[in-house]
Design a protein around this nucleic acid. Structure first.
Lengths: 142, 142
DNA sequence: ATATTAATGCAAATTATATGCATCTAATTA
DNA sequence: TAATTAGATGCATATAATTTGCATTAATAT
């Protein structure tokens, strides 16, 4: 997402632009792969911002509720987030090292009409996750 | 999964066939949609088997480690399981009522070769999740 | 029937996440 | 620019999912 546009549209809605909020939005505007609360905390520490975990959770919920982030479930007991403005894509999750890469190819939407006709299920969103071994891990093992 | 075959193959590997194990395997052999630990507990209570939560978690881990179950992540902070022997399929997750249905159409595997050629990422598994509104919930709202 | 060891229950520990409340601070106003 | 005010934050605590240590129980082989 665009840093300045996001911040000013939040401000227009009456929300405050704080040090924490600015940095979290910045992080997601610079990262295209999903980040967990812990990873966001780490990134903030890297720029010497020590922020309470509760605050980070609250800020993620806030940006989620306001439509700037979406939740991603790639692993047990860990929710990640990514910008909702990213082009539709799927994830390549390396089950060895955890690295995540994005792919933008998508055939899945072709299924949507079919599913609605046959089952009356109106698809609003879908996620396609790939699990496997990334090139780097394959090299290390072989 | 097949109840008898699963149990006897577990026994062949030197594992015991206990009341709990038998019932958990039975539950997953009769259910094609993903179940969380809590849902497994409920199903056991329905047949008057009151089993400690730790035991249920251990049994799920056990069946996962032995390849009879796979993990499914459909919602924040909740891991579900389903039989690993089910035909490849995807889930229709109703975001209103939580109902889960399976679809067996799948175009995703067509992407696999392409991804390997372009990125060296060897896909071992993929999951395709659909979020939306099921026919029943649509009827109630409209 | 008995011995052996896996499975179980219970309590306590862990980890992710949420919440109450007092304090602080960004944005507004005088 | 200082005073005002509600939103944001930190801290401690709560909650929920899951794991683990340990003593006890029970499935299976002998």
């Amino acid at each position: 997402m665009n840093l300045d546009i996001t911040l000013s549209s939040l401000q227009d809605k009456g929300h405050r632009i704080t040090k924490v909020r600015k940095e979290v939005v910045k992080i997601f505007s610079e990262n295209t792969t999903p980040l967990s609360a812990n990873q966001v905390e780490e990134k903030m520490l890297q720029v010497c911002l020590s922020v309470n975990k509760a605050t980070i959770y609250r800020e993620l919920q806030f940006l989620l509720a306001n439509g700037y982030l979406v939740e991603v479930y790639l692993r047990p007991n860990e929710v990640s987030y990514e910008s909702s403005e990213l082009k539709h894509h799927h994830h390549l999750v390396c089950s060895t090292c955890g690295a995540i890469d994005n792919v933008t190819n998508c055939l899945a939407s072709e299924l949507e009409d079919d599913v609605f006709k046959k089952r009356g299920f109106r698809i609003k969103q879908h996620t396609l996750e790939f699990y496997g071994t990334c090139a780097e891990c394959a090299r290390k093992t072989t």
